[in-house]
Design a protein around this nucleic acid. Sequence first.
DNA 1: TTGTAGGCGTTATCAG
DNA 2: CTGATAACGCCTACAA
Lengths: 341, 341
Amino acid sequence: MPDSGPPPTLDDVARIAKVSTATVSRCVNDPRLVSRPTREKVQAAINALGYTPNFAARSMAAKRTLTIGAIIPTMENAIFARGVQAFQEELHARGYTLLISSSAYRADVEEEQIRTLVARGADGLLLIGHDRDAAIYDYLERQRVPVLAAWSFDLAARIPSIGFDNRRAMQSLAEQVIVAGHRRLAMISASSAQNDRARMRIYGVRDAMAAHGLDPETLELIEVSYDVQEGADAFETLMQRQPRPTIVLCGNDVLAVGALRGAEKLGLRVPQDVSVTGFDDIELAQVVRPGLTTVHVPHREMGRLAAQELVEMIEEKRTGRSQELTATIVNRASVLDQVKG
Amino acid sequence: MPDSGPPPTLDDVARIAKVSTATVSRCVNDPRLVSRPTREKVQAAINALGYTPNFAARSMAAKRTLTIGAIIPTMENAIFARGVQAFQEELHARGYTLLISSSAYRADVEEEQIRTLVARGADGLLLIGHDRDAAIYDYLERQRVPVLAAWSFDLAARIPSIGFDNRRAMQSLAEQVIVAGHRRLAMISASSAQNDRARMRIYGVRDAMAAHGLDPETLELIEVSYDVQEGADAFETLMQRQPRPTIVLCGNDVLAVGALRGAEKLGLRVPQDVSVTGFDDIELAQVVRPGLTTVHVPHREMGRLAAQELVEMIEEKRTGRSQELTATIVNRASVLDQVKG
DNA sequence: TTGTAGGCGTTATCAG
DNA sequence: CTGATAACGCCTACAA
């Protein structure tokens, strides 16, 4: 059983190594400033005591934490996992630690978490998308915390973003299926309130319809929460509409998998009887059968670039530069080409 | 554009409200101690300034952070997502904030993250499983940080755990398939070094074989990293062994999905030509076709109980009580019953 | 009910 | 290269 008492402090180390606290501090933070023998003495004391710097004290004195916070809508599925993973890896390489929380797609929870992270001294924040109260941006500005948005690109927003054009990406996909002969389109979307990604994807479908002579109002649309089961239910509902849609465009891959399950339950074959598409291209999309035609989002690159940009904003005290990435269509087996057959 | 200058402090609020800093502090932490009119004055000042308490200062003075840290092996797939989500929800209900980091299944990274979280003043820690250096447990004891393990139940371990018996659960599943007529068993496991869950699941299969008159040594075993593709590759390798296994037991659902993909590539039908099982019962297991027969882990309950236990350990300063949960078999379509046909 | 003042563990500035 | 020492922002006895 090891010793007892409170955790060792800088003072304890200094006393044992017979140097000043300042010297110990230097050993920990920038060993080059300390002579070899002193350094070794101090290191020995640190090891003997099992000393770890107190983070709170350190960040109070240094006014920075080398910590970055990220708030993502959900961890329950893999939609954000890969991007966040890349974000974390890049941050780690630059000496930062990532703290993650998930808001369950709730604006009030997100706001609370933003405040928590800021109060904790996060040097910067990564948020998803741009839909939130102006008051939050005011708060962030007042606190002078660098903030970057991802998964969405919008030059008109109050904070810079590293992302892609959700609207245009979805428009391309919708145009492709229209060109492939589909005329009766349906869509299952995530709830579009407080979610610019979801909303823009809906707009994208309508854009495509308008551009190809279809009435955007004829889009059969159902909004649900992110969830396989809800996607399946929505699919069943859509299949009862008359005339029946020939394709169901889904706001993300998870909903699309739900649609696949709904089709299965109804005994409909995909894509022979009805086509389905997703969005995001998470692993699920290529693992499921039929493989999902979907929009590939460069998750890893987005995460990496976001980390680079945010760190630069912090270290160079400059405003962020937005960057637009390209999302591309990935064709798998879930869409029937009605022209080529 | 809001004001400029540094974020407001307790002092600023006190000055504007014309009270002492102590009073403001009370307003924030325990408003009952302050008279109604004073409280309102202070609240007004807080709102006017957009004041948020500085976390570092607070935790230094109060010696607690209302923060709990969790380190999970991966966020890339959903294996831990649901349990952690429930853990977070329960913590939130009790006033705690959860900080998560992922170790990518690397012991050295985990150790670093443990130290980071402790240095940050986490009031308690949740770890996955029990496999780690004794030195880490020494460190944790010295720092007097309450720690709980999940996803694994082991009374012999140095820290209490809320989990299930991985070995017994896998043994049940293996026995079931043996009873169903399978004699040539193969297994794809996650790397079992530094991973007690993976190791115990392997033991479980061998236990079942021994108990039913099969030589445990005949188990065809391949260890891979968690990953669909590696699972698929391992499956292909196993299918070349002579005699060919009739069933491939996988250490988790992600590997099992890999196996399904491997079978597809080889043109083998599951379960007619070969059976496959998973472990964990994440959403993927019921979304994939054929649905995976797997071990259902009570993720949400585990997360919730872990949160309750850890908070009590912290607030009542007592050692943790381990709790064993039950994992049950879920039968879906991926296993062929060779007896009933 | 409210105010005063000491201390929490580091970092950083400034001398030596 | 090393040592004093003043912040950093808040909490909490203790006193009034």
